[in-house]
Design a binder for these strands. Structure first.
Length: 260
DNA sequence: ATGACGGAACATTTCCGA
């Protein structure tokens, strides 16, 4: 059965050996990467192609950058989130793989609240909602995966009080995330594990956060009804976060039934 | 109130992230 993963790698070149090892061990079929932190030409394409993946990237210098890896051809690629032609931040890459429309999403952080950065986050989320609504019209399977930089509910963080007021947990951010769900999108992990606590996908590098399990769940796979109907498993793989030179995020992996 | 870690780059310091 096909698996699709999302992983914010916090620089693909700093993380290459960890990424190659994980691809070889977990053997995901489709991978949505965020924060590749390089331009397209600097992406280590050959090393990943050698493992049997096709590669599409949408990079920029130093910051942001997203990519899609797939065992199947990557078709009809859209670079950038529609709705704001002047937006030069590389945070959205969309394509068709194995009959599914997929997108790799690196949603803006939005801190500090009260600045143009928070306004950009909320505007970006509205653009994403509009794009998702368009994509849902076809009824084809759709997977919107990535680093949403949103803690959906108190259960999704170790200490809700510590996150009060942060852009990741502000009511406006959570409401905009719920607006995506209200379109009919399903949070794959939470749908299958409705009460699971300490299910985190990010732990800060500082203050021993990983060892203390002071994490947050901000990396999400949102599935359209046609994709959610095929959902059989969703897991957070903490193994890459334990390794030396780890990203501060770890992969989230969904398993879908074969196409009917 | 600040820093703590870690990455990139016009780099021995600054900007950014969550």
């Amino acid at each position: 059965m096909p698996t699709i993963a999302t992983w914010n790698v916090n620089s693909i070149n700093a993380r290459l050996s960890n990424v190659l090892e994980w691809l070889g061990a977990a053997k995901p079929d489709v991978v949505l990467l965020q924060e590749i932190k390089c331009q397209d030409a600097a992406f280590p394409r050959e090393a990943i192609e050698d493992l049997g993946y096709q590669v599409a990237t949408y990079g920029q210098k130093s910051y942001n950058g997203v990519a899609i890896l797939s065992r199947w051809p990557i078709l009809d690629v859209v670079r950038g989130l529609p709705g704001e032609p002047g937006d030069e931040q590389a945070r959205y890459l969309e394509a068709t793989v194995d009959g599914m429309r997929v997108a790799s999403i690196y949603l803006p952080n939005g801190n500090p609240v009260g600045t143009e950065k928070f306004a950009y986050k909320l505007a970006w989320m509205e653009r994403l909602r509009a794009r998702a609504a368009d994509l849902l019209e076809s009824g084809a399977p759709l997977v919107l995966g990535g680093d949403y930089n949103v803690i959906p509910e108190p259960i999704d963080c170790h200490d809700p009080k510590a996150w009060e007021g942060d852009a990741l947990f502000r009511p406006e951010s959570r409401r905009a995330f719920r607006a995506l769900l209200h379109l009919g999108l399903v949070d794959a992990f939470r749908a299958l594990h409705p009460h699971e606590e300490h299910a985190y996908s990010f732990w800060d590098y500082q203050k021993g956060a990983f060892q203390l399990d002071h994490g947050i769940r901000i990396d999400h796979l949102l599935l359209s009804p046609a994709a959610a109907d095929r959902l059989v498993a969703c897991a957070i793989d903490k193994e890459p976060r334990r390794r030396p030179k780890a990203s501060d995020h770890t992969p989230v992996v969904a398993t879908l039934e074969d196409r009917p």
